[in-house]
Nucleic acid binder design. Structure first.
Lengths: 204, 204, 204, 204
DNA sequence: CATGAATGAGTATTCATTCAT
DNA sequence: TATGAATGAATACTCATTCAT
């Protein structure tokens, strides 16, 4: 009764929170935040409605958590790429591929983030906007460094470039998500997009 | 009593529909579609709640109308530019400036369209997606023609370029809308964006 | 300009009130009082919505008027029959045939009265119940007189007989109205009903 | 702790559905279906508005359920009487007394059924009419058998007799319900009604 | 910790009624 | 008188949240 059962006794369901988040990402992606009922999340997660409130303050909090942890995860990886010592061109390409690649595996997360980033509920904007800006800032950082290092032309505002790049990737993902979306097509689109931006950025 | 005053003969205000649409654009931009109450639209339009239902089937119909007429207006102007006989570079620049310029004057419309295009309500997607695709197609057309005419490099998929361009503009507008957004800043961002894409597209 | 046009000048539409009432009877019979929109009455009468309020205080008033004038008309005829000097058996038969016959021609009025008599809106009950009671009372009067004259058995409460008779006719009409309802069938049902009641009433 | 108390183990009240139905019967009888607010039903049942929707699809569904279960209950008992091996006269008398007697104890149910049976909402008629016809048919069956067995005169259409009997009882109940309605008066009216019909039906 | 029945605040929509023309 | 566009009060129903078990 002792020893070997220790682990399984402590917090039997430390994964419930995760299951709820994963389920929420799925249904938010499918139906949007407002059209999603809390009971749908619960059902998708295989828990009771009330259980969700043991892990989250309310429905908003679920979305906010997805934002924070989701974008957070993206940011972490993004920063690694951005701060690597690869040539700047490679870093830009990696950023694009990474996002597309990562999101290809986490398509729902992408959908939730890009779709709901724009929901205009004051509360959500409050949380989402700064995270979005951080995201942009990391990309802008790479551009800026590239400019300083003489790899990129210097007459472009790094933030504008970063926003453009983000928007381009986002739009490609959106169209891909709206259509049938086969992975190879997405990858090829990424290559073209990278080429377009790198030529646009190249110092002459 | 003067020259027959045609204008003064109208019964009530025949512009109610317009007032409602304008008001809706304003409040949707401010609070988002879902968070906006029909009564708020009515109040902003200076009409009674019920009046809205004399002109629109329901709340959804108001948004759909904004989409259709708003994007429709954009499309018309866009097509003129796209089919002009200016050099291709100029057309691309015009497309960007035109959109940013037009929307600068109609910031709320921009917000509504870009923000809500992605809302996942099935109904709305049904209406919005085809319009969005048309939009992309017009831009892609210019790119394609430019490629065929030898003005642009030919190794890029025109649709991917179009999506990237759309996304870039969209993201710039979004950031601008999220921030304080002064018009000069937007204009300058547009110039940089244009330069970035034109260099990226240039045949070498 | 004078003489011959006098009549047509005075109150051009003294029939509007009638048209509205007739239209109301039709649509009330079809859809019931609550499910009928004032605009439907107006449309059926070929007048504008507002016109109804020139002749009636409100929607309730339209129904009340139908009750009063409709039952009033029935009562007048009924009283003539009830107070005739025919044999009592004939009077009872006439009452049945008259109602069925009259209503056959005014099926909608019948429907409105019998259906809506039972609507439980306080206001309507207030108006309808006394009229209903008068109606019953006229029939009861015939029974009572018949009893006093020795034509009918005297052990039955005249009011109970009157209610039973009214109810029987009402139910026959209702079933007839719910079904296909061809006039001959209704007439035959009336004959059977009369025979049933007359045998039941006969003094032995 | 005592003998296992089965009853006390139930979560909440499992009788909510019944309480809602009973409350609905009461308020429908009082105010009519259309004039009754859902919140009034809820208040009368001592539950929250939303609770009603846990047990019924909508307001219509509450009324339909009352019809079905109410008339259903009546039908069950009616059939027992109709198919008993009592003399036919007794069966007819029982049918009358049973209805009046049963309804005397369930005055509100009577009111709801008889009043609203005729409401012309298409939906309701759809549900109510067939039940009504079944009801008539059971009574007609007794008459028909009585005729075949030689107990009743054979020149009357059993269905017409059944409708007349139903209508008579209905009208008596209606008057009783509209007035103060003391039970003894109702019982006496029933006796008179039975006598009237039995004499009317008697073979001579 | 987990449940899910119950709650009741919140809102789109309808429609009787008004009134400027 | 007659019109019908405009009004806004009124209400069925939904769904996030709670809490007794």
């Amino acid at each position: 009764m002792a020893v070997h059962s220790t682990a399984s006794k402590r917090k039997r369901a430390p994964d419930k929170r995760d299951r709820i988040l994963k389920a929420a990402i799925k249904v938010f992606a499918q139906n949007g935040f407002y059209a999603t009922r809390v009971s749908e999340i619960a059902k998708a997660a295989g828990v009771a409605d009330g259980t969700i409130y043991l892990y989250f303050k309310n429905k908003d909090d679920v979305l906010i958590t997805i934002f924070e942890e989701g974008i957070g995860r993206l940011l972490t990886i993004l920063r690694e790429v951005a701060e690597s010592d690869e040539p700047f061109e490679n870093r830009v390409t990696s950023i694009i591929e990474l996002q597309l690649g990562l999101l290809e595996e986490q398509r729902d997360l992408a959908e939730v983030i890009t779709v709901n980033l724009r929901q205009s509920s004051r509360l959500l904007k409050q949380y989402a906007a700064p995270l979005f800006m951080q995201y942009i800032e990391v990309i802008a950082g790479v551009v800026r460094e590239g400019q300083e290092a003489g790899a990129f032309r210097q007459d472009l505002n790094p933030r504008v470039v970063a926003r453009s790049l983000f928007g381009a990737i986002d739009a490609i993902l959106l169209t891909w998500a709206l259509g049938e979306g086969d992975p190879p097509a997405l990858r090829k689109a990424g290559t073209h997009c990278a080429s377009l931006f790198l030529e646009g950025l190249r110092k002459r």
